[in-house]
Each structure stands twice: as structure tokens, then as C-alpha cells.
Design a protein around this nucleic acid. Structure first.
Lengths: 253, 253
DNA sequence: CTAAGCTGTGTGGTCAGACCACACAGCGCA
DNA sequence: TGCGCTGTGTGGTCTGACCACACAGCTTAG
């Protein structure tokens, strides 16, 4: 007869994870109320709350006060916030060096761009006619929208940077890999403060933002031209160039 | 006079994050006791505990009962567990498709191998003499050890898989990028159950494990031979081959 | 008959308090 | 000097009280 050495909140967490794995719970479902869960699992309500809090921050539940179908803890699957919190806190605690964040971004974002270009290439090989109804290119509509939005006159630096982040993320989203999307969002958030502070070190924000916009256009053009190698290089230069210019590191190869 | 709309536990979390960012707290430091923190921040002790639990799961604090210098909540910076929990739970909640996990692994691990090979190449260009005392190759000692351990006769499948995971992680560690290490650890953990279950679908575990070991040796040889392209391809084939064989997806290019 | 108001219920959010085991530090005694 | 005891502060856990919220159901008035 083994004594369960797990802590009370861990019992709750494991129970919910198990239900997720077995398909007993899925996004949209509502957990039993805290009091019910506590009774069912033989723990205190505080321990239930601790576990729920963990799940909330990791993007697995959303909680609502009240009654009726929208009340309580609802299962969601939104990893972005959790990834951001984890990375942001690890940067703050010096577990993740900023340079490593930047390098990881380089790895992921160059891969995304190359993969999009490859998808265009595959589509083109199957259907060389760009207007063919059966031709399935990746959907870059959102990317284009964001580039157009970045061309608006009078954007503040913060507005520009937010659109810039959104553009990069839109490439990942066009790729369709949820893990990469969440990871990239987290990486970006983790060093957001540093990026913003780096703007002050630029010789000319106007020159830099012009250059960034042009580079974005170049990246998108390389993707649309089905040039994986070109897209990869342009993204690499774009990201490392900006970080070098703001002295955030690392210097370009 | 604005009312703080944050929840009580969020106030605690933000306070601790701020202290980390300002360098008032760093790994090894001890947080004030829960009761003290509650009083200082004007919240209940339960709310402090909820925040601490979040930080604990994300790898930012470790808690010890007792008194003296090792008691209480100590700041750490160990992102691996948090990354694993986040990814594992997101897979369970269907936020992260398994296929996306695999693809992300491919991106990261091929980049790691290529970067190691490039580091060997750089070292060789600076110091062609392999025995030169000033030559600084990446340290692959741990990788070699693990490969040797995998050659032991009579390993169970689980033992083999654990060593296999450790080998892959040791490559990331040799690269020295903490973000990639944690991310890869999380990715691997997230689908560990699937990987283990996949073994049952193999025609011959013996043949497969032999092949895997040979492929590991090939990867390491390509790295040591300063061949980034070769290392990249071998890792890609190695990972996608195993997943295809166990039908975990995705099929090789 | 319909709409508005009231009541009851269950939800999460929060705090306080009680008690436990743990781990150490300090003190007293052999 | 070493051992045992006591006190203190630590996290861990549970319980209970109360709050605001949100809905559902019922009753009353127009």
C-alpha cells in the first residue's frame, strides 16, 4: 500500500492532464467546480486552486465567475501566453541569455521562411499556372496586410514594432505549425523590453524603419518567388542586422 | 486613483518578476516567507501560494519546508521542467499537434548539428592542427559517452530511448544555447508516450536500434568532419526516418 | 401574456485561521 | 564537548467565511 507522495496540487494537475490525454476533457469543456473537484480528489479547495492557477498560466484553462454554461474553469488550448510567461521569466531570472533567444529566433524564423518558399515551389511544380484553381499556395494575405499597415505614415515606434512582431508571427502562422507560432511569440515577448530600449540606440529610426520595411518586402518576395535559400538568407540578415544595429547581439555571421 | 484590477496572485507574480528584472532577486536568493510577502503586498497567503506555484512549475523557484538558509522559496532558473509541462499539456489538450512537435524538432535539431559542424569548421580554419592547444572545438565528450552507453548489450527499449533522448540533448548542450536545450527537452518529453508506443509498431526493434546507433555515429562523424550540410541532412533523415517507421509522422520529404 | 424584478444557487476570488511536519538555531545539562 | 530539548519560522494543507458575479426560475405588475 504505497502512500501517494505527490503534493495535493500535483494530484489535481495529474488528474486533469490524464482526463485530457484520455479525451475525457477537451477544449470547450468545463471542469467540475473547485469544491466538487476538491471533494472528488480528497484534497482542499486551495490545492485545487493552485493547480488551476498553473493550468491557467500555461494556457490550458480560462476561469469565469458566475453561474451557467460560461462559468467556472473552461478548458482552452492557447499556448502563446504560457510560452511568453515562461520565456520572459526565464530571461528575467537569467536562465535564458538574450543572445540565445536571438539565435533561436534566427533558427526558427529562417526555417519558416524557407518552408513557405518551398511550399510555393511545390505548388508551382504541381501547377505552374499561378491562376489555376487547384493551385494551393500558402496564404500570405495577412502578411501582406501587415506590411501595408507598416507603410502608414506617422506610426510611433511602438506601433511599428508591434506591427513588425505581428508580421513575423504571421509568417509562422502561414506555415501552420502551432508549436513554432507559440515558440516564436514567446521568444519575441521575452525580449520585447530590450528590443524597445534598443530603438534609442539607433542612429536614425527613420532610416532603420525604412530599411526594415524594405527587407520585409524582400522576404515576402523571395517566398513568393519560391526561393527557399533566398528567403532563408534574407530573414537571417534582417533579424541579425536589427539586433546588431541595436547592439542586442549577436553580430551577423 | 486607479483601482488595481489585477488579481491578487498576479500582483505577487508581477512583483517577483520585477525584482528579477531589476536584479534585486537572482538564482540562489531566497524569497521572503509567504506570510511576510502576503503582508508586504497586502494580499492573502493563499494568493501568494498560487503565484509561487506558478513560478515553481515554470522552473523559477524551488520550495523547501523547514528553517535556516535552505528553507522557503529559493530562486532557480531551470526552464526544462516548465517547458516540458507546457508542451506536454498542450499536446494533451490538442493545442499542439504531434506533427508540429516533430517538425519543430527537425528544425531545431538540424540547426544544432549544422552549427556544431560549423564550429568545428571555424576551429579548423583557425587551427588546422587538430592537436594544437589553442584549438577550441565544441566539446562532444558527453555525446560520445552516450553513444558508447547505447552500445551496451541487453538494454531495454526504455533504457535505449532514454539514452537516445540524452544523446540528442547532449548535442544541443554542446551548442550551448539554453533556449534550444530547454525547447528540445520539452518537445521530446511532450511526445515521449507516443514515441514509446511507436516501438510496438516496429518490424524489428533490434534492426531499428542498430540503425539508429549507426546513424548517431554518422551524425557525430559529420560534425567532427566539419560538414554542416552533411550533419543537417543526417539528422533530418535520422529523426524523420524514425517517426515514419513508427508511423508517428511526418513522412520524410 | 410579457417584461421586470427578486430570490436562490453555484461559480470563482480572496482572506483568515488552524494545524501539521520539517529544519534549524540556541540553550542547558551531563 | 556532545546530545537533547525547546522555540521559531518555514512551506503544506485544509477549513470556513464572505464577496461579487451570473444565471435560472418564479412572481408580480402592467
Amino acid at each position: 500500500m504505497t502512500v501517494d507522495e505527490r503534493r495535493a496540487w500535483e494530484i489535481v494537475l495529474a488528474h486533469i492532464e490524464n482526463d485530457l490525454l484520455l479525451g475525457r476533457l477537451k477544449p470547450g469543456d468545463r471542469l467540475p467546480g473547485e469544491r466538487t473537484l476538491a471533494t472528488d480528489l480528497g484534497v482542499g479547495r486551495s490545492s485545487v486552486r493552485e493547480a488551476i492557477r498553473v493550468l491557467e498560466v500555461l494556457g490550458l484553462v480560462r476561469t469565469n465567475v458566475g453561474s451557467g454554461p460560461t462559468a467556472g474553469a473552461i478548458i482552452v488550448a492557447l499556448p502563446g501566453g504560457g510560452m511568453s510567461a515562461l520565456m520572459r521569466l526565464q530571461v528575467a531570472a537569467q536562465g535564458f541569455p538574450v543572445a540565445d533567444i536571438v539565435k533561436t529566433r534566427l533558427v526558427l524564423e529562417t526555417a519558416v521562411a524557407a518552408e513557405l518558399a518551398e511550399a510555393v515551389l511545390s505548388a508551382a511544380l504541381l501547377r505552374p499556372d499561378r491562376q489555376h484553381p487547384d493551385r494551393h499556395d500558402p496564404d500570405l494575405g495577412r502578411c501582406v496586410q501587415l506590411l501595408d499597415a507598416m507603410d502608414a505614415p506617422g506610426l510611433t515606434e511602438d506601433e511599428f514594432l508591434a506591427l513588425d512582431a505581428a508580421f513575423h508571427l504571421s509568417l509562422a502562422e502561414a506555415c501552420g505549425n502551432q508549436v513554432v507560432v507559440a515558440t516564436m511569440a514567446g521568444l519575441r515577448t521575452a525580449i520585447e523590453g530590450y528590443v524597445r530600449a534598443g530603438v534609442a540606440r539607433l542612429a536614425s529610426w527613420s532610416d532603420t524603419s525604412d530599411r526594415l520595411r524594405a527587407e520585409h518586402r524582400g522576404i515576402l518576395a523571395a517566398i513568393e518567388a519560391a526561393d527557399p535559400t533566398g528567403a532563408h538568407s534574407l530573414v537571417h540578415a534582417h533579424i541579425s542586422g536589427y539586433y546588431a544595429e541595436t547592439q542586442l547581439s549577436p553580430a551577423p555571421h
